[in-house]
């Protein structure tokens, strides 16, 4: 049952990734189409900070971080768990992936928070 829930969540986050990643692409890689600015301008420090200080962007990136990391690391877990592993090693893989995911999520959240709380000229 636990595995069914984890697998279902792996599928359920797909629409979230599609929408949020699509938004991320629209904001940065398709800035000339949607915002009338060049990709270089959209990637500039000032514009990136200005963007990151909005609450919508903050929420978008935290959700994308969580959904993307879950989908990717759950997939990676499945690939590794398919290899001939002892039960102890399989458990170690599970714990290692969870800890790695939490660390990267924490780090990404910190960077997003740093941008959100950036004081211009301060």
């Amino acid at each position: 049952m636990r595995e069914t829930r984890l697998w279902s969540l792996h599928l359920l986050v797909i629409p979230i990734i599609v929408v949020l990643l699509g938004t991320h692409f629209a904001i940065i890689h398709y800035a000339p189409v949607f915002y009338g600015m060049s990709v270089e301008e959209a990637r500039s420090f000032e514009v990136m900070i200005e963007r990151g200080r909005s609450i919508a962007q903050f929420v978008l990136y935290i959700l994308l971080l969580a959904a993307g990391l879950y989908h990717g690391l759950y997939g990676l877990r499945g690939i590794i768990r398919e290899l001939p592993l002892t039960p102890a090693l399989a458990k170690l893989v599970d714990v290692g992936i969870v800890l790695f995911g939490l660390f990267i999520f924490g780090f990404g959240t910190y960077v997003t928070w740093w941008t959100f709380s950036f004081k211009i000229g301060g």
Binding site: I49, L65, F107, G108, V111, W114
Partner: peptide, 9 residues
């Protein structure tokens, strides 16, 4: 990408 974009700091 997460590590590389942290370069902003």
């Amino acid at each position: 990408h997460i590590i590389e974009t942290a370069n902003r700091m």
